[in-house]
Structure formats: C-alpha cells, structure tokens
Nucleic acid binder design. Structure first.
Ligand SMILES: [Zn+2]
Ligand SMILES: [Zn+2]
Ligand SMILES: [Zn+2]
Ligand SMILES: [Zn+2]
Lengths: 161, 161
DNA sequence: TTTTGATATGTTATATAATAACGTTTTTAC
DNA sequence: GTAAAAACGTTATTATATAACATATCAAAA
C-alpha cells in the first residue's frame, strides 16, 4: 500500500491536545444549543474529562475524579451525564471495554467504527462507509434489516507497530 | 435483491432444534478430544444450556438454572466454563449484551459477525469475509494492524420485519 | 413575579457482571 | 501408589449499572 495515501488518525504525543478538548466542548455547546438541550456544568466537565486523553475512559474513573472535586458525587451522576452525552452523540460507549470515548464526528451523522490499540490503549473513531455499507449489504443477504452496528477493532496502531 | 439468493439463517419456530443442540455438543466433543481438553459434565451442561435457544444467554441466567440442579453453584463455576468454551471457540460473548452464544462455525477458523434481532432476540452468527476483509483493508488505511474484530449488528430479522 | 411543570441533580439502596484467592477433589502421568 | 496438573468448591470482593424517590434548579405561563 502507498504510504502517502495512509491517513493516520492517531495523534502524536506532541500534538496540541488542548485544541482537541476545546473543539469537542465547542461542538458540544453548539449541538446542545441547536437541540435546546442543557449543557450543564456536570455534563460539560464529564465530556472534558473523557477528552482528557485519546483513550477510552471507565465510568468509575470519572466518578473517582469527580469525587475529588465534589465529594458527594455518586454513580447516577456519572451515568446520567454519560446517557445524555450518548443521546446527542457527543460520546460513544466501547461495548467490549465498558468504556467511553469522545465522538470525533459529533457535528454530522455517521456510523462510526473504533480502532483500539492494544499496546498504547489509544483509539480512533473512523467513519468508513465501505465498512458500514458492506455490513448492510451482507446482513441483507440473510434478510436482516440493519438498525445499528457495533464495530470495535483491536490491534496495533502505527506508532506501536 | 433476489429473494431466491437470500440465505436466511434465522431458524423457524418449528425447526428440529434438538438437532441443533446435538450437533453442537457433538462438535464440542470432537474439538475437545482433538485438543486433549476435558469436556466435563459442567462444561457440557453449560454449552447445552446456551444452545437451548437461539438467543444470547446471560451468565447469571445460567447460574440460576444450574443452582436449581445443584444448589452450591457459584459464579466462578459458570465463568470458568464460559472461559473454557470461549477458549476453544465453542461459544462467543456478545459484548454489547454481556451475553453468550453458541458458535455456529466451531469446526473451522472464522471471523464471526452477529446479527441480533431487537424484536425476538434471536441471533445468527455469519462469517462474512467481505465484512472482515473490508475492516482489515479500511483499518490499514489508517496504518492500523488488525488483530481482532467485534462486529455486532442490531435490527430486524426476516420473520420480524 | 409568583406559580407551576419540567428538567436536572442528590441520595440511598440494590441489581448485575466478573474475578481474586485459596482449599479440595479428580484426573492423568509416571 | 504417588505426584503433578487440572478442575471444581467456597468465600469474599471488585466492577458496572440502575431503581426509586427526594430536592433543587430552570423556564414558561399566569
Ligand atoms: Zn488530542
Ligand atoms: Zn462518533
Ligand atoms: Zn435450533
Ligand atoms: Zn463462531
């Protein structure tokens, strides 16, 4: 394969990650406004924490962090915000990890797939219509009408190979 | 699409399901023998219970059933057998449901995908090389080397449409 | 600007999923 | 028969998620 054609979506250690966070929060703000949904401080903080890294985050890790900031925080506080953020496609759940990630395509409709590196734990969300369409077509071969797809791909990212 | 070309893998209510179970147990027996792995009564019973339906089964549902048969059964008994059965590809875990299903291709290497009906809960495992290859190719576009894939597809099966 | 309904958050309790650690039994190999 | 390995029993705990109800906040209507 032509190296030049590779679009490496994995982030370098030295990228401007504050920009990733800012953009995510900004997008979230716009989307919530557009839907007249309230982007409350807790929801905002949880989204910010999820974007703190490019790795999937566990709900109870979020809980631990929030408890340091406000000691009466309980699981429902976290899960409610996670549910809200998922409802508006601002985050996704990685089912095979019970972990949550920021959505990279929140500003537009998409059917995401996740590449998760087993070495460094970094992930990227891709939106491959080739994958989603192939799944649609192949499922139809069995007379199955697809409503949603969970595609979680494990392996080694470019840096870790 | 040509209806005739559809290969509907979903089972009718009146199919000979005892044959499904027998075949699965039989295949398991052979595979365990070939690997000099012990197909113990507990492991056999759990595989049988998983094959009792064409629906994903929860670990604690298995536990409840086993407890009726032997009241000192505890979670590790179930999970150990599930781990064993997964190791030899006799069952798979549906990550998005925390549930377990019998493998339909245990006798040969495969990369399965799951079609799960949200109406009747029935599933089928397909082994589409189109899907698995597309995932491989698309991941490589991002410089990612695939080691494993989780593909869980939700929607409506032919009967429920 | 109070009332009121809706939404969000606080709080307590519990359900569900899975594993750690260690002891005992069973199986297999020698 | 004995020893090592594998399987299973047992107790405890960790991890993930939700139910149910109380209180607080917000926003629209009166
Ligand atoms: Zn970044
Ligand atoms: Zn997304
Ligand atoms: Zn059957
Ligand atoms: Zn399979």
């Amino acid at each position: 394969m032509n190296k030049i054609l590779e679009k490496n979506l994995f982030q370098n250690r030295d990228h401007n990650h504050q920009a990733c966070i800012s953009e995510a929060l900004d997008t979230a703000n716009k989307i919530c406004s557009a839907h007249e949904a309230r982007f409350t401080p807790i929801r905002r903080r949880i989204l910010e924490l999820i974007w703190k890294s490019h790795e999937p985050v566990l709900a109870y890790d979020l809980l631990r962090i929030l408890r340091r900031e406000k000691d009466n925080t309980e699981p429902p506080t976290v899960y409610r915000s996670l549910d809200f953020l998922m409802e508006y496609n601002l985050i996704h759940k990685i089912e095979s990890l019970n972990a949550y990630v920021g959505c990279s395509y929140a500003h537009r409709p998409h059917i995401g797939q996740f590449l998760i590196c087993t070495e460094c734990n970094q992930f990227v969300e891709i939106d491959s219509s080739k994958i989603s369409k192939t799944i649609l077509t192949e499922a139809r071969q069995s007379g199955f009408e697809v409503a949603s797809q969970t595609v979680e791909i494990y392996g080694q990212c470019p840096k870790c190979r």
